[in-house]
Amino acid sequence: DETGKFLVLALYDYQEKSPREVTAKKGDILTLLNSTNKDWWKVEVNGRQGFVPAAYVKFL
């Protein structure tokens, strides 16, 4: 159920650099879980949760 969740689009490829991050490919649609940090947003992609740089994604 996606009610109340926001989707964001990956603008660039991002390769995770730590276990707390997730890899995303340009064009991926990610479920935004938390955007309270202006630099790192928590997302879910391909069943995995983790952080990506906020500058790499935008709201749909």
Rank of each mutant, 00 (worst) to 15 (best):
D1I: 13
D1V: 14
D1Q: 13
D1W: 14
D1M: 13
E2Q: 14
E2M: 14
T3A: 12
T3N: 12
T3Q: 14
T3G: 13
G4R: 13
G4V: 13
G4H: 13
G4S: 13
G4D: 10
G4P: 14
G4Q: 13
G4M: 12
G4F: 14
K5H: 12
K5G: 10
K5N: 10
K5T: 11
K5W: 10
K5F: 12
K5Y: 12
F6Q: 12
F6A: 12
F6L: 14
F6T: 14
F6H: 12
F6C: 15
F6M: 14
L7M: 10
L7I: 09
L7H: 10
L7W: 12
L7G: 03
L7P: 01
V8F: 07
V8R: 00
V8N: 01
V8Q: 01
V8D: 00
V8L: 15
V8P: 00
L9F: 10
L9G: 01
A10T: 10
A10I: 14
A10R: 02
A10E: 02
A10Q: 07
A10P: 01
A10H: 02
L11D: 01
L11W: 06
L11P: 00
L11T: 05
Y12E: 09
Y12K: 11
Y12Q: 10
D13H: 05
D13I: 08
D13G: 06
Y14D: 02
Y14Q: 01
Y14N: 01
Q15M: 14
Q15F: 15
Q15W: 13
Q15C: 14
Q15A: 12
Q15I: 15
Q15T: 14
E16C: 15
E16M: 11
E16Q: 13
E16F: 05
E16K: 14
E16V: 05
K17S: 09
K17D: 05
K17I: 05
K17H: 09
K17A: 10
S18Y: 06
P19T: 09
P19K: 10
P19F: 10
P19M: 08
R20S: 12
R20K: 12
R20N: 14
R20D: 13
E21P: 04
E21G: 11
E21W: 08
E21S: 06
V22A: 01
V22K: 02
V22Q: 06
V22R: 00
V22S: 03
V22P: 01
V22T: 03
T23C: 08
T23N: 05
T23P: 03
T23M: 04
A24V: 15
A24D: 02
A24R: 02
A24M: 15
A24G: 03
A24K: 04
A24I: 15
K25Q: 09
K25T: 07
K25L: 09
K25E: 08
K25G: 04
K26W: 07
K26Y: 05
K26G: 04
K26D: 02
K26L: 08
K26E: 08
K26N: 04
G27R: 03
G27C: 10
G27M: 03
G27A: 02
D28E: 12
D28Q: 13
D28P: 03
D28F: 08
D28Y: 06
D28V: 05
D28M: 11
I29R: 03
I29H: 04
I29E: 01
I29L: 08
L30I: 07
L30F: 05
L30Q: 01
L30E: 02
L30T: 02
L30C: 09
L30G: 01
T31S: 07
T31L: 14
T31V: 15
T31W: 11
T31A: 07
L32A: 01
L32K: 00
L32W: 03
L32V: 13
L32N: 00
L32H: 01
L32E: 00
L33C: 10
L33V: 09
L33Y: 01
L33D: 00
L33E: 00
N34E: 14
N34G: 07
N34M: 07
N34V: 08
N34A: 08
S35I: 11
S35D: 10
S35R: 12
S35M: 14
T36H: 11
T36L: 09
T36Y: 10
T36V: 10
N37I: 05
N37K: 04
N37W: 05
N37L: 08
N37F: 07
K38E: 10
K38G: 08
K38H: 10
D39H: 14
D39I: 13
D39A: 10
D39C: 14
D39V: 13
D39E: 11
W40F: 05
W40M: 04
W40D: 00
W40R: 01
W40Y: 05
W41D: 00
W41I: 08
W41T: 02
W41G: 00
W41R: 00
W41C: 07
K42P: 01
K42G: 03
V43F: 03
V43Q: 01
V43P: 00
V43G: 02
V43A: 01
V43D: 00
E44D: 08
E44H: 03
E44T: 04
E44N: 02
V45A: 09
V45E: 01
V45I: 15
N46G: 11
N46V: 04
N46K: 08
N46H: 09
N46T: 03
N46E: 08
G47Y: 05
R48M: 08
R48G: 04
R48K: 11
R48F: 05
Q49V: 15
Q49P: 04
Q49Y: 07
Q49W: 07
G50I: 07
G50S: 01
G50V: 04
F51C: 12
V52I: 15
V52P: 02
V52L: 13
V52Y: 10
V52Q: 01
V52M: 11
P53S: 05
P53C: 09
P53R: 05
A54E: 03
A54D: 02
A54C: 09
A54Q: 04
A54S: 13
A54L: 05
A55S: 14
A55D: 09
A55C: 14
A55L: 09
A55K: 14
Y56I: 15
Y56Q: 04
Y56P: 00
Y56L: 15
Y56D: 01
Y56F: 12
Y56G: 06
V57N: 01
V57S: 00
V57F: 11
V57W: 03
K58S: 13
K58A: 14
K58V: 15
F59S: 10
F59P: 13
L60C: 12
L60Y: 11
L60A: 07
L60W: 11
L60Q: 07
L60P: 03
L60G: 03
